[in-house]
Design a protein around this nucleic acid. Structure first.
Lengths: 219, 219, 219, 219
DNA sequence: AATGAATGAGACTTCATTCAT
DNA sequence: CATGAATGAAGTCTCATTCAT
């Protein structure tokens, strides 16, 4: 009985893994049940024994992909000492995010890839997780600002969008075997915290005035 | 004769505009020739008078979309005084990038949306433009570092990936009518140049040591 | 333009005729779009140029089939002299009903064949026509009874169900080339009006008593 | 061993009952082995332990359904006193027919429902029973005519088709809880024997002449 | 320059059936 | 006896594309 259950579970996992990989490579509409089946070593019709539809399959992949990142980052942060400073928190979160993308690999990659191609209904169902993740970051940033570790004039929400955007886009160029996760995480954290500018150079009183001098385009 | 040509050109533009809009909304595989035709007020078969195939259509849209950003940013930078400093250059480039996305609208949005769903062949053909754009930024950043306006230890390539990632992801959340382009550009530039950290807080000698202390995960 | 329209109309008719024939032979679920397409001399996908779905196709067939009977019977009755008696009316209606089944052939046959196999939604949509036809007969019978041409104790509704049942079942055995429509219509009318019993034999006072003696089973 | 056999028999009955019910509700092609299995509280594959195929299942259901009517009517007639008159015989047969449809319920209803949707081979195999039933009625009617209880000019075969058609169609409208079987049987018998026309009105010498006057349509 | 009509390939999905356990 | 898992054939429908008009 345990073996039977195991067999079913194994097949289901095989299908899921195959789906993640294929979705990641071809996007939502570009993926066919047949291709997934081939990858999972069974016939297209057989997928339906495990998943009721293509949509249910992509849903499962999305869930795993989102949870992977969310949970990995969450745990990594929880593992930090209570008195960890911002730099540590942010670098840790970034490193965890990148790790998740590598480890759970296909799932997170597939998630980034197909979100936005997937039927509205499915995307909506996945929004909560996305929002949770956004909240996680927002909290880190807001806390840091409260504790006085951030510039008081920083727009936290915009900064979060900037950071998460950069992290999400990561899947478009990050390839295992190239740069180290640590290397990337370290550098990204540096940009986020210190910027690229030379310490002394920072925002002279004149600078903002200059910036304001350029005509504002309102949209 | 000129009028005939004109009519053809007008129709062609109508088709292209329609395609951009529909591709932007439904992605590559999610877009049908019929939907584009409807939007352009003609019948599916008629598109083929102007474009040989769906792929040629998406190619055209991608080209325009990429050029729009590349050209807009290029011009904006060229219009700057020769002695403009990094902050100005970067904020200007960001603002131009965002402007292009808004102004050329459907084309740039479509570009970001479908790149990655499009058949390999087409994506490859579009790579040159992508690379050009990457070079443009790389140049800005390298120059700044050469001129001593950046931290000497900043990894320019990774930083560029970070910045462009954030800018590209922008289409996922930026909606006209909400935040001002200037607002976003200003804040983004601030993060890039100054980081979020408080000026004094920056990279104590201890900090990097600490960071290095965490075990490195190599991929 | 007229020729173009004609071509479309011709094809559509060809598809419809094919559908009627195939539905009549194989029932609803037993009919495939491919079979219909073959019969209509085009490819399965092409049917969808004329009809949006299998259901829309069967709907069209049902409509025509029901209308054929309803209209034929209606006209036949309207053509009778105002002072026609019941026997004429009934025999005429039966003859018209059978004629419709033969003339419009496939459509009416298909109608009788697939009604009851068809998705609820479609059947419902066709109910109004069925009810109209029932009303037509009810009216004939009620009028006859009012005018005193029928036994006063006859249950008109049950009788109508009896007659229409017999007529509807007709498609299961009536084959052109065998019996004449007139022959059948005449005999059916005779049963309906005179019964099979010998004129004198009718409902003696004893008979009903006897009948009543058998125990009544209530359902 | 007996118990094992018993268990098998019970399951087999459960499957058969389920099949009858489902076939009755969804028709032949509309019924899936899975749906039957669900109704019988086992899994689709298990049905094949009891029946070799869907066709064997429907065959069994059809046989039972046909036999039910045939046997019920046969017994009811056998139970009549030898000197029973036509009215009694016919009303009894009708009542028995309706009873069978109600009592054996699903089987007879399924029979009427799917006959005509079922593969030719199966229908053929079932024809003998259908013919037996037809013979039964033919005998009743011919006997009555021989004994002089029917109009001498009645066409017995056509009348039989008329009567059986009406009885078969009965499943389309007869719902338990509504009219009583006895009520329906009595009224149907009245139509068959006496017709609807007023006793005196019957076939005046003029009437047939008139009827003959209408032009004959030959098919 | 545009359209109506058709095609063929292929997509998702369902289902009767098989078979090892 | 029964089930879980899988298969292969087939079904409905979509869509890029073609071509005569």
């Amino acid at each position: 009985m345990t073996r039977k259950l195991a067999k079913s579970a194994i097949s289901q996992k095989r299908v899921l893994d195959a789906a993640a990989k294929i979705f990641r490579d071809y996007g939502y509409a570009g993926t066919t049940m047949r291709t997934i089946a081939d990858e999972a070593n069974l016939k297209a019709g057989s997928i339906y024994y495990h998943y009721k539809s293509k949509d249910e399959l992509i849903s499962a992949v999305l869930d795993i992909g989102m949870h992977a990142v969310l949970d990995t980052v969450n745990s990594a942060l929880a593992a930090l000492p209570a008195d960890a400073d911002v730099r540590q928190r942010i670098e840790t979160a970034i490193r965890a995010h990148l790790s998740a993308i590598i480890d759970i690999g296909d799932y997170t990659l597939a998630t980034r890839r197909v979100i936005g191609q997937v039927p509205e209904a499915i995307r909506a169902q996945n929004m909560r997780l996305r929002d949770s993740y956004a909240s996680l970051w927002q909290t880190i940033l807001v806390d840091a600002q409260k504790r006085g570790e951030f510039r008081a004039d920083a727009n936290i929400t915009l900064s979060r969008l900037f950071i998460l955007g950069a992290l999400n886009w990561t899947v478009e160029w990050f390839k295992p075997g190239g740069r180290t996760i640590d290397e990337v995480a370290h550098e990204f954290a540096a940009v986020v915290l210190d910027g690229l500018g030379k310490p002394g150079n920072t925002k002279s009183e004149a600078a903002p005035a200059k910036a304001r001098a350029t005509p504002r385009i309102t949209v």
